[in-house]
Design a protein around this nucleic acid. Structure first.
Lengths: 225, 225
DNA sequence: GTCTATATGCGGATAGAC
DNA sequence: GTCTATCCGCATATAGAC
């Protein structure tokens, strides 16, 4: 049996990290609430950061698998033909939202929102946390960057990468705001609206033509008519 | 004289926070390097977080002032006429970059990049830091949201706000990546390219037409031709 | 192997002498 | 205003009980 203690730590920590935040949740808080000894965390995981990584891994794997699956399905469906930008982005940005939308009870949904917020925070946390996030995320981002490059053959590779980063930034920021959005508009389906808006925003950003030549110093030269 | 000690703390902390990160920089590190007593931080600022707020305030004020000024100039220049989206976004996203571009020496530039990264991190730090960031930022965001709404009269107010959030997310994420980008491409002007790409990406995102009706469950229905 | 009791050292904060 | 001494909570390490 893989140590019930280990699972109890994992579950309790997951809830506390999402609920209260990683920074303010101490190992003492976790072990007290889980009714295990303080040293158990170190025995089973090695450190607080390693525990965090384990939680990330456990929750991110199914989401990333779904992303890849959706992307593969896109390619298969339209045999040979290149998928639309919006569909590619939907396969990438959708899964975290789907995972949330599929939850049943109100409490589960609330908990799920908190986890999304937690995930978003990890994107811009300490270097070490970011690193462990991207350990499993990098390959996914790579695959989607390739797909987008194929769909946008005229866009310079550097520019595709930059736009992918902008999308990642908008995504993580959106995840942080998810909770607030959902609570404000009591129970309404606004998270879905937020998610749809994000896809549309990013798709438009990706689809715009290459940036102006960088020779001119004056950057914004657009006419008003 | 407003305490030379206070200034020394402020300067040293600013450098260390940006250089090493807020989390790993202890008050002991700061006070040792600044040659002041450990208790001085608490006397002058109250706490580590308050010190951080003071640094944020000092650096953000001129940037935010420039943002407002640029926006005002836009309105004045084309009397009555509504400015282009790209110009509005340029006035908002440009100042942090200008502040960096105006620095002279290589060391100053490097330091400036680190500060931009630090600023970006604050966007998704603890609730308390975020709050102090937005204490002075909220009004600016409000003004620009209004300007964008005016330039996009057909876009629902909720949607304008959402897109502003996406832009903020892309911006803070970009600031975090600034340092890396600049170092990779040895000394080249890529930060400017990054900044221009961001404006273009966000402008396209803002300019796209309203999202699909939310009645349909199937979200991505775009045809390929 | 699994867990506990306990120790180490560093962090921010503070009371009170000067 | 400045400094010393000290407090308490923290993550982490380890010795040894079961």
């Amino acid at each position: 049996m893989t140590s019930e203690t280990k699972d109890r730590i994992l579950n309790t920590a997951e809830r506390l990290f999402a609920d209260e935040g990683v920074g303010v949740t101490s190992l003492r808080d976790i072990t007290k609430e889980a009714n295990v000894n303080l040293a158990a965390v170190n025995y089973h995981f090695g450190s607080k950061v390693e525990l965090l990584k384990a939680i990330l891994e456990r929750n991110l794997r199914p989401i990333n698998n779904q992303r890849i699956k959706l992307l593969d399905d896109l390619s298969k469906k339209n045999k040979g033909e290149i998928p639309a930008i919006e569909d590619i982005l939907s396969a990438f940005l959708g899964p975290p939202f789907y995972a949330w939308a599929e939850l049943d009870t109100t409490e589960e949904k609330q908990q799920g929102l908190k986890f999304l917020r937690f995930l978003g925070q990890c994107h811009s946390a300490s270097e070490e946390i970011r690193a462990s996030l991207f350990e499993q995320f990098d390959l996914v981002v790579e695959r989607f960057t390739e797909a987008l490059q194929t769909a946008l053959p005229n866009l310079a590779p550097d520019e595709v990468r930059r736009r992918m980063e902008f999308t990642l930034g908008a995504m993580s920021h959106t995840m942080i705001l998810f909770e607030l959005t959902a609570q404000k508009q009591d129970e309404k389906e606004t998270p879905r609206q937020l998610f749809e808006s994000l896809i549309r925003f990013a798709a438009a950003g990706f689809s715009t033509t290459s940036p102006l030549a960088t020779s001119k110093k004056n950057i914004s030269k657009k006419s008003k008519k």
